[in-house]
Amino acid sequence: MARIHFTSHLQRYVDCPTREVEASTLGTALQSVFAHNQRLAGYIFDDQQQLRKNIAVFIDGRLLQDREQLSDPLRPDSDVYVLQALSGG
């Protein structure tokens, strides 16, 4: 099962422990997580159900390729990190 990790920064706002899901793509993996945590979806996706522009996703150490369809493939043992871009101030 792929493991989906969320930035610790998000824990301030919404409960989002690491989840293990069976999914072949990033999109289906995230939908599987959000099915049990709808509030989390609003922190990751915008109104158009697109990845928020300052959210970065790494799959097995590689930045995702398809931000629109989230079609990047997952292996059964993939590690996915959902992170925020850094900002100052």
């Binding site: 998000l10 706002y13 919404v14 109104d47 158009q48 928020r52 300052n54 959210i55 900002s87």
Partner: peptide
């Protein structure tokens, strides 16, 4: 929240804690 979007919280008159409620959302 910038990275994580716009959020709306409500604290009912007799409550001590804030609760996140729905924020306005544009239709897809």
């Amino acid at each position: 929240l910038g990275h994580f979007g716009v959020k709306l919280h409500r604290r009912a008159a007799a409550a001590s804690q804030w609760t996140e409620i729905a924020a306005p959302q544009f239709p897809q």
